[in-house]
């Protein structure tokens, strides 16, 4: 039964992804000035929005790690699994943003990369979470989770800066499509639909991967604990 539910949800996610692809590539009209390259927008922006979601999951989970790690270690361990998974999936989404951006920028701007506030803060965001994943590998022992959680707080500080970057400063990066003033928003209903479907599809994919990752990490933690107990019993 459980396997069937997993199979069903995976199939649902795949179908949603395929539908999103169809909407973005075939249904949405070609943009008048940029041409077909604009379709990368249906991947770039949903991934950017969702990378905030997963880094927020990482931040909330890290917050609970910090609260619980002294008094309720079992709960802290659970929260830590969520924090790790959130950071890993978030880094994947952020990487997609950083790859699709230059692919769009080269034909439209004529350059791959520029050091404006939006691009720089996105790169910094990515670097911080990569260093978060690195410290989890380097720092050993039980203190590692609290230490990683502390670093996650620093990463979370960069998120609002990144969100506000092209709202505060004039950037080469296009001004915000949503919540960016009177002109913002997608006017064409087909474009809006393609965008909405892709947000949904990528969210479903990301959450599915997140849940699998949390599950694997929990199994790993339980395995580590039983190994530690076995080692203690042998004494």
């Amino acid at each position: 039964m459980k396997k069937f539910a997993i199979f069903l949800s995976v199939a649902g996610v795949m179908a949603l992804m395929a539908w999103g692809f169809y909407q973005a590539m075939y249904v949405a009209p070609t943009e008048s000035t940029m041409g077909d390259i604009q379709r990368i927008f249906y991947y770039h922006v949903p991934n950017a929005i969702l990378c905030y979601l997963f880094f927020t999951i990482n931040f909330v989970a890290s917050f609970f790690v910090l609260i619980w790690h002294r008094n309720r270690p079992t709960m802290a361990l659970k929260a830590d699994a969520w924090a790790l998974s959130g950071a890993e999936v978030g880094v994947v989404f952020c990487s997609v943003v950083l790859v699709t951006g230059p692919i769009w920028g080269r034909p439209v701007w004529g350059i791959w990369w520029t050091w404006d506030a939006r691009l720089t803060s996105t790169l910094v965001l990515w670097l911080i979470y990569v260093s978060y994943l690195l410290i989890r590998r380097f720092a050993a022992g039980g203190g590692m989770q609290a230490i990683a959680a502390v670093l996650a707080v620093f990463g979370a500080v960069d998120m609002p800066i990144n969100y506000l970057a092209n709202r505060i400063w004039r950037t080469q990066h296009p001004s915000p499509v949503f919540f960016g003033g009177e002109d913002s928003g997608i006017k064409d209903p087909h474009m809006l639909a393609a965008f909405g479907w892709n947000v949904l599809a990528w969210a479903a994919w990301g959450i599915a991967v997140l849940c699998f990752r949390v599950y694997v990490q929990r199994r790993q933690q339980i395995l580590d604990q039983s190994e530690a107990e076995a080692a203690l019993n042998n004494f």
Partner: peptide, 18 residues
């Protein structure tokens, strides 16, 4: 933060620079 990790000399710039 990196004091208790293996090769902490390497780790500090890795976290600090970003």
């Amino acid at each position: 933060l990196s004091i208790r990790s293996r090769n902490r000399e390497l780790l500090l710039p890795l976290i600090l620079f970003p």
